[in-house]
Design a protein around this nucleic acid. Structure first.
Lengths: 340, 340
DNA sequence: GCGCGCAATGTAAGCGCTTACACTTCGCGA
DNA sequence: TCGCGAAGTGTAAGCGCTTACATTGCGCGC
């Protein structure tokens, strides 16, 4: 039987080269265990046939894939893009391939994708934030797939992490705002449900408020998905209320940029009429006018470090110590003392 | 022998449920071919064991993965993020999983990743632009993996495509600029080598210039990677030359935003002192002040349509007709007639 | 009451690869 | 000259799954 135009296999190569499949396999995986002449023959056959090893078969036989899986909430957002790009570059340098999936912020989708990546033989997983169904962690433990968490940092949690402390960052911003004399403050947060990062950020604000004698419960907190337009809308509704705030703390830069646009629409000057702050320090933050006061997160650095940590876990089969990535307050034009 | 804490297999499930592996497999893949009672037993066993089918094995046996691979130049850029996100959403709805890799604009890396995705059993591939080593196309044909090209459109090419005509878009912008009376024009392009999209865009400009009696070779064309800071730098060097242009055409919005920042640095007012245009219409374009005149590309729409086309190719095993995605000139504040 | 057909399930042959182990050479020291 | 070990290669047993085909058992019509 002649196999019609189906991809060539190890067998085909072996036949063409006149050697056994074992030799071909060795040529590809441990070239020094094969004598020069044979190797040449084999490689020629590989070339002639345009042979590519079948990954599934290889994974199945070798129990190793050199693949890392990452699941991020969305790709359509600079927040994750930069860090993931650095993560992938670092992996690539070490001979690993990154598989990225996005969950659209849906825990159920994320759980499915975790299974999917594990089933695909991912040697390790990179996930955003801690909060997820314990069953997921159980599953991962049972499959003994190393997991690294990022974009968050919590010393209490015992999952290896390379991330930053969302609460601390936002608390710093809130302190700065209060320090400048603002008392009428409002918050435009991302969606809080099932998202420990947004939750921690709001928590940070509440801590700062309490520490300065402001009852956090008097401060309006709006929730909305991370989209520019949502930021605009939320901001407008805050500013058109009976007692508009003098400072609006936004959950991230995307919302803050939206707020800035909203101010423009309303004819308000930032920061003269109202101060606006962000979080993340994505490119957008320095491009807008006025530039955003925000929390700088070294995304690329975090991505690289995460890659190194995860590879170590994969290769040593042991958890690594968590690393807190330092973040810094970035004072720019969008924050100033209140008017009067 | 007791297999210690290794992932459960079909066999384990079959044993626990007291049925054959075939029945378990059927329960998972064709539940209606198994009687209710048996199915329940099996699903209970699956649950108890936390069983996940091994993807490699499944792919090997079934010759089908429901996986689509995409390779984009970079994730660290909104240009691709939005389209890819829509692409993945559409795939997901149809039961496909997307695997994304990024090539850092390196053809060699891209070729490697193509092989890697094919080896992983990708049922189809989504690639950006036409230009690549013919050997790559040969390989793909030989492996009979359907490929869809996007982010470009060229009726001459016979690879199925869902994309837009870069040349046409940029020509429209150039026409508009010339139409407003600009004669001293300069271009800040992305890197041209091995990139048909940037090349086509510049070609579009040259066509427009020629059509209006301006010798394209008198127009300076700077090349630089798509980064904001590069745009700033290139713009500054143009504006500080002996005869600064009255309009700077940028290869995309990222460079254009950089140029805008450069103008700010130089104390130039846009568009009074100099006009600046972009391409893509990413969010950045409407956020900056003045907002960018640019070419609007419906990224999400393109992503969805591409997903549908590729799935059709995968399922019918036949190429689909190419689709040109219409793009439109978006006039905004950054373009105006020249001063005098 | 018997045989037939169909529905439910089991059996076992691969899918393409890696690798432990067995085998064959060959060179070298005694 | 012979024996031994190392180096190069082959053999074949899985890895976990799907599926063609074989088997079983049941209800039904005559």
């Amino acid at each position: 039987m002649t196999r019609t135009r189906s991809a060539p296999t190890l067998d085909d190569v072996a036949q063409l080269a006149g050697v056994s499949t074992a030799t071909v396999s060795r040529c590809l995986n441990a070239p020094d265990r094969v004598v020069e002449g044979t190797r040449k023959k084999v490689l020629a056959a590989v070339d002639e046939l345009g042979y590519t090893p079948n990954f599934g078969a290889r994974a199945m036989a070798a129990k190793r894939t050199f693949t890392i899986g990452a699941i991020i909430p969305t790709m359509d957002n600079a927040i994750f893009a930069r860090g993931i790009q650095a993560f992938q570059e670092a992996l690539f340098e070490r001979g690993y391939t990154l598989l990225v999936a996005s969950s659209s912020y849906d825990p159920q989708v994320e759980a499915d994708q975790i299974r999917s990546l594990v089933a695909r033989g991912a040697d390790g997983l990179f996930l955003i934030g801690y909060e997820r169904d314990p069953a997921v962690y159980d599953y991962l433990a049972q499959q003994s797939v190393p997991v690294l968490i990022s974009w968050a940092f919590d010393a209490q949690q015992n999952v290896p992490t390379v991330g930053f402390d969302n609460r601390k960052g936002m608390r710093a911003i809130a302190e700065a705002i209060i320090g400048l004399g603002h008392r009428r403050i409002a918050v435009v947060s991302g969606m809080l449900d099932g998202n420990d990062r947004t939750t921690e950020r709001v928590e940070g604000i509440r801590e700062a408020l309490s520490a300065h004698g402001i009852d956090p419960d008097t401060v309006p907190v709006l929730q909305t998905p991370y989209e520019i337009d949502n930021g605009t809308e939320a901001f407008k509704s805050l500013m058109t209320s009976a007692t508009p705030p003098t400072a609006v703390i936004c959950g991230n830069d995307v919302l803050a940029v939206g707020a800035l646009l909203g101010a423009q629409d309303l004819g308000l000057t930032v920061p003269a009429d109202v101060s606006i702050t962000g979080f993340d320090d994505i490119e957008l933050a320095r491009i807008v006018t006025p530039a955003l006061t925000t929390v700088h997160v070294p995304h690329r650095d975090m991505g690289r470090k995460a890659a190194e940590a995860l590879i170590e876990m994969v290769e040593t089969k042991a958890p690594v110590a968590s690393v807190e990535i330092p973040i810094t307050l970035k004072m720019r034009g969008s924050l100033a003392p209140p008017k009067e």
